[in-house]
Design a protein around this nucleic acid. Structure first.
Ligand code: FES
Ligand code: FES
Lengths: 141, 141
DNA sequence: ATAATTAAGGATAAATTTGTCCGGAATTAT
DNA sequence: ATAATTCCGGACAAATTTATCCTTAATTAT
């Protein structure tokens, strides 16, 4: 469904959202440990999220990563940042363009699923799903 | 969503289903042309579908591929044959196991989408979606 | 100032997926 | 029988994704 990178990215965002009330930032090692991901690869994904301004980063001692506290971020934004818009645009059978005018044989049925997914992605905020992590109601690894 | 191989496999099955009333089989070249796929790679996928007994094949002159006429095949069976059960079992965030007992933060929301998808995959028969191809109501390329 | 810490970024490697090539086996037609 | 056709299957190659390593830059604490 999503790329591994996108899975990591989502977990990163949710993890950092769950720590949004702590005054200190989380470092790469903390994050990779919290979501059970390879450290160096996780660093690359963190970079992308920072470039896309979905995260803030600070270098040096006590540096690390954190969410922008006054900015609501949906899962859709995270997915788009890493995997692009394919998941909510591409034809399920791989036709070059997905359209009503020239539909593949399963277009109608799959548009319904895609819209369902799109709805969830765009209405789900990372802060919302971040709650419940600290309390071990939900898990990231 | 699906692998390229799985996209090709679905198109192959749908294409051959749309030709189920012709008395002759379709050859590799025909098929690859009909679904706009690389020939050699398509051959590999055809092999897999034959091994899984989702298709029949005959070698030699006038040979080729075709569906088993008395066997109803759902899209689910095709997807399972090529991509495995991941799409309807795996955690969307990549947790090793997806379960109610130890859910990721988006488990409930995504199980709904996954079930929606599963429903469509298992109720959609290739013969059903095969109709409309010959008439260019639906397209495979 | 210096040393320690931490992210940034480039190069490279491993793994997986996608795609190609070619000789062999089965079948048919002549 | 022979030749032509078509799928089978193994080896290989290219492309993409995932993952690692190492040097540099920024920041902080001493
Ligand atoms: S054309 Fe295939 S999903 Fe729209
Ligand atoms: S645990 Fe993540 S989808 Fe079920």
């Amino acid at each position: 469904m999503f790329s591994k990178a996108c899975e990591y990215a989502s977990k990163i965002m949710i993890y950092l959202a769950s720590k949004r009330d702590e005054d200190k930032l989380a470092g790469l090692k903390d994050i990779a440990k919290a979501i059970n991901s390879p450290e160096a690869y996780t660093a690359k994904i963190l970079q992308q999220l920072v470039r896309r301004e979905l995260l803030l980063s600070v270098r040096g001692p006590n540096g690390g990563f954190g969410i922008h506290k006054n900015k609501e971020v949906s899962l859709m934004e995270v997915v788009m940042a890493i995997d692009g818009e394919g998941i909510v645009k591409k034809c399920i059978l791989g036709l070059e363009v997905c359209s009503e005018n020239r539909p593949c044989p399963v277009h109608d049925k799959f548009v319904a699923v895609r819209d369902h997914l799109r709805g969830i992605l765009s209405t789900t905020l990372i802060t919302e799903v971040g709650d419940g992590i600290e309390e071990s109601i939900f898990f990231l690894k």
